[in-house]
Design a protein around this nucleic acid. Structure first.
Length: 569
RNA sequence: GGACACGUGGCCCAGCUGGAUAAGGCGGCGGCCUCCUAAGCCGCAGAUCGCGGGUUCAAAUCCUGCCGUGUCCGCCA
């Protein structure tokens, strides 16, 4: 509880000085208490024991004695526990909390190859990335969200070739099915076009040299900045990308800017970069003239050669990525990338190279993959769950529940609630777990709307909304009233909201804030049970005031996670 | 083979800048709608924190070895 720390630290500093401790290394061990009944901040006194050659228990007791008339403090078994005064806490909560962000942040996320619809695995990037964007904005930072469009290279080449050379009939024949179950997405450009891509990939597997050389020709041309090929590529991937973005938009995910990979080839920054590499002391040349940097000299383990130029002089994906990063550094003071764990090595190489050139290393949030019970997700083997299907399923499931629970609502209202619940639940399920945890997608978990889920948080919020609606006005100025256990607990959770947000933002860990929302909702539910705002028609102003603060905090917090706050559900 | 992650009750997961009885959820069992929406609330059962060493007053947390799982190791993107 940082607001309490500000009060306690100076007092504690003085008290320790009195006992002859003049350093301030203890500040880092003064931390949030683990258990509720311990208090809000705790200081273990064991480390003082050696220095003072005294029993830690005695030290804690002595400190408690010195501080007893200045703050609420107890010593227990060598620990010093501080507790925020209830009324002070209530006043702080009513006053509200300032957010501290002031950085100019550029967050690049998703950046998926525009060659087919999102499955839930690929979408983890977008959901995590967008949550980070929202959290940073809530924190007060200026944020730009970027999508790096891979508009050159083999994947797009394959797609472009397929669209040029394969008819619909041919595609169906190659894929050996057009009566797929995914007819529900007929007309959605990413689902439609991915078939061409898949068909082409099958043909390539059969080893048709002509196809291969035609694709290479185009890819090569694109790498040299060939206008016609690049615009052909763009015509091929644009509809697919639009379809993919439509899915993200449904999830509440939008981008501020799109930057095309080809930009850095066309504007010459890639060739300038490769010239700059020549002057580095770790540069090396292979037999055929290909160039690399020996990152082993900079601490990279395993394979240390990082190739940035082919034998024929053309650039590689990673080279362009570095040019892109240099460009990004020119427009922000904090750079964050959201990447799958398969990019760890690549990202390390980019980071070391940037460092070698005198640039800062970007922060990276890595996430592990989502698997299916049957194994790894793979479009090719048909082992996928498309995000569009998941969203549709989640919405249907939500609609069923709303229809059950709320016979008073119109079909239109049910639809609106179901969409919000479905989308929020899908997002929250991904956000609430630590990104470096690989997890297995299970329908029954994805569609669980109880317990630790978005609807749980949404429901608490609607309860607060319902109260506000019943009262029908803003809370007026009031005295601080009675603070029972449930309210006290709510106040404490609210008081650490900013601490949690700060940890989530500065550590790139959205799940920390998801947990905070869960705890806030839980605390609000207890408050709702025990501290009635309206009693026999009379409004308890103090309770109402706290309820409103909690309502706003829930609303803002939900928005910061992409969970949609509804007034009724 | 090498590098990097992860391994916590039947299942999922938090905690891992070392600190006091390991927090939740799902599932199981038992309760609560004459009272601001029961997608809620309360109670019970369930954990040798993968295994072995080490550091420390103190280890789920740090170091190390092993085992298991995942990812990566392209002059692909």
């Amino acid at each position: 509880m940082e607001i309490l720390r500000k009060v306690i630290e100076p007092l504690l500093g003085d008290a320790l000085e009195e006992l002859g401790i003049n350093t301030d290394y203890w500040k880092k061990s003064l931390s949030q208490s683990r258990e509720r009944d311990q208090g809000d901040l705790s200081l273990p006194c064991f480390s003082f024991a050696k220095e003072m050659s005294k029993d830690p228990n005695e030290i804690a007791k002595k400190l408690a004695e010195i501080l007893s008339d200045k703050c609420n403090v107890h010593s227990v078994g060598g620990y010093l526990n501080f507790r925020a005064d209830k009324k002070w806490l209530a006043a702080e909560v009513i006053k509200g909390f300032e957010h501290a962000g002031e950085s100019n942040v550029l967050i690049e996320h998703t950046s998926a190859n525009p060659n087919g619809p999102f499955h839930v695995g690929r979408a983890r990037n977008a959901i995590l990335g967008d949550s980070l964007v929202r959290l940073h904005r809530y924190y007060g930072n200026i944020v730009r969200s970027e999508y790096y469009v891979d508009d050159m290279g083999k994947q797009v080449g394959v797609l472009a070739w397929a669209l040029d050379n394969l008819t619909k009939e041919k595609v169906d024949q190659i894929l050996n099915s057009n009566t797929d179950s995914d007819s529900r997405w007929e007309g959605k450009s990413d689902h439609e076009t991915v078939k061409w891509y898949q068909a082409a990939q099958l043909l390539r597997q059969e080893g048709d040299q002509e196809i291969e050389s035609e694709i290479s020709r185009m890819v090569h041309a694109s790498e040299n900045g060939d206008d016609t090929v690049l615009s052909k590529f763009e015509d091929s991937y644009s509809p697919v990308l639009d379809g993919m973005l439509a899915t993200l938009s449904r999830l509440g995910i939008e981008f501020d800017t799109f930057t095309k990979e080809s930009k850095f080839v066309v504007d010459g920054s890639v060739s300038r970069l490769m010239e700059a590499f020549e002057n580095l002391e770790i540069v090396g040349t292979a037999d055929n003239g290909a160039k690399f940097l020996d990152l082993g000299q900079r601490g990279l383990k395993g394979k240390t050669e990082f190739f940035y130029r082919r034998g024929d002089g053309s650039s590689l994906y990673a080279t362009r990525d570095i040019a892109y990063h240099i460009w990004k550094w020119g427009q922000c003071d904090k750079l964050i990338n959201v990447l799958g764990e398969d990019h760890k090595l690549q990202s390390k190489q980019v980071g070391l190279t940037l460092q070698e050139l005198g640039y800062k290393v970007p922060e990276v949030m890595f996430y592990a993959f989502i698997k299916l019970p049957e194994g790894k997700m793979s479009t090719r083997r048909g082992n996928v769950v498309y995000m569009d299907d998941l969203l549709e399923e989640a919405k249907e499931h939500a609609a069923k529940i709303v229809r059950d629970l709320r016979s008073d609502l119109s079909e239109e209202e049910i639809n609106h609630i179901a969409e919000a619940v479905g989308v929020s639940a899908v997002r929250f399920n991904i956000i609430k777990v630590s990104p470096d945890k690989g997890f297995t997608f299970r329908w029954e978990e994805a569609l669980s709307f109880e317990g630790e889920s978005a609807p749980f948080v949404m429901y608490s919020h609607t309860r607060a909304c319902s109260i506000a609606k019943k009262v029908g006005r803003k809370p007026s100025e009031c005295e601080i009233g009675e603070i029972g256990d449930s309210m006290y607990e709510l106040l404490r959770i609210m008081a650490i909201n900013h601490d949690r947000l700060s940890r989530a933002v500065n550590g790139n860990k959205p799940h920390i804030y998801a947990t905070q929302m869960l705890e806030l909702a839980t605390a609000y539910n207890a408050f709702y049970r025990d501290c009635h705002v309206i009693n026999e028609g009379v409004v308890n102003e103090f309770n109402f005031c706290i309820s409103e603060r909690a309502r706003v905090m829930l609303e803002q917090g939900m928005n910061a996670l992409g969970v949609i706050p509804l007034e009724s559900m």
